[in-house]
Simulated assay, not measured.
Amino acid sequence: MRRGFLGCLLLLSSTAIATEATPERTIYRHAVLIDGTGAPARPGTSIVVEGERIVAVLPDAQADMRGARVVDLQGRHVIPGLIDTHVHLATPPDADAARKTLRRQLYSGVTAVRSMADDVRSVGELSRQALVGEIPSPDIHYAALMAGPGFFKDPRTIAVTRGRTPGQTPWMQAIDERTDLVLAVAMARGTSADGIKLYADMPGPLLARITAEAHRQGIPVWAHAAVFPAMPADDVAAGMDVISHSCPLAYQASARKPASYHERTPVDEAPFNDGAMPAPITDLFASMAARGIILDATNLVYVRHVEEYARDRKARRRAARPD
């Protein structure tokens, strides 16, 4: 009797192992695939999924249907999952609102988001819930922030470090020339952040030192295009992985450049007035391309200004027309 009982346990164990090793296979058939490469749409496409992984994308006629669950997508279009590269899920933290946002994004086709410096105590828990399937959500990747001491007068830093001192937490660190960067980077990594965001009030040489140490410890560096007094060219020279916001790139061509984050010096528009891209900007893009630096353009931030520009342009055209 005992031997038979052990035999049943072994059989159940081997069955469980086999089940884990063979995830459910699903084939989504008859889709029209737009693959995002610029190639023509591909009708009659099957997408083969095993567990949580897409393992094949191929014509319907080539899909092996045996043993698979089949979902008919006749008349439907499929695109790759979208990535929202710049969100703030917890500034200030509001987990209920964040979960609603994440659900809406997931069901709108967004499969990954990058939370660009928030209260990581909240974002880390949201990330865990997303990872284990407790909430409907895209994958969440988030940053720990570093900035010069002057930045931490910003009231947002109080909201995301509640109960602690802004600038003195592992996810919101004030950095200057005296900072132990080995320890600072290690503390940022200890938050389980996917990257370090460099934000404000830092000179170019300090950016380079932080980036070098972060890369030595195996964590990427993301930064605003202008980290005043550091300019976009300083970001690029430092070798960071992602630069955020396209509009501050124009400071590279401005005659007057802000000396700090709190100095609200407007971008000089004169170098752009003839419609051509100024040499400092084209040189900057060439250097970014050569180094493989990604631009997180976040154009939506400036949509109001774009609309105003479009209205002004139309007004100028009407004024230039002969009566």
Rank of each mutant, 00 (worst) to 15 (best):
V71R: 04
W222R: 14
P92S: 07
R291F: 09
I294P: 11
H215V: 04
A214I: 04
G44I: 03
M172C: 11
I34S: 14
D154F: 13
E308C: 14
L207V: 05
A279D: 14
K314G: 14
R104T: 15
P155V: 05
Y309N: 15
S244T: 11
R313Y: 13
V221G: 08
L89C: 13
A233D: 15
G167Y: 00
Q74Y: 13
R256N: 15
I27H: 02
D201L: 09
P322H: 02
A230T: 06
E24F: 04
D201C: 06
V49L: 02
N273V: 13
M65K: 11
A259S: 13
G190Q: 05
R76M: 08
G133C: 03
G124T: 06
G150M: 05
M202N: 03
V120K: 00
A18I: 06
G239Q: 05
R66Q: 15
L89Q: 07
T211M: 02
D274T: 10
V32D: 12
P205F: 00
F285Y: 15
T165D: 03
Y142A: 10
Y28F: 13
E125R: 10
Q74R: 13
L106P: 13
V267D: 09
I54K: 01
P203F: 05
A310Y: 07
R29A: 14
A61H: 12
V303T: 13
H245S: 00
R304K: 13
G150P: 08
A230D: 04
E20L: 14
L102D: 02
G81K: 06
V57W: 05
H88L: 03
C8E: 11
R66A: 14
A39K: 04
A310Q: 14
D234Q: 07
Y302A: 10
A130M: 01
A310N: 13
A90Q: 12
I17G: 08
G163L: 02
T101P: 10
A319F: 01
A226R: 12
T211A: 10
A147K: 04
A188S: 06
A41C: 07
T169L: 00
P220G: 07
I219V: 10
H88G: 07
A97T: 14
G239L: 01
A289D: 14
D35Y: 01
P203M: 03
R317H: 12
I219G: 07
A193N: 03
I34D: 14
G218D: 12
A144I: 01
A39L: 07
W171V: 05
T22P: 11
A290M: 10
V120L: 12
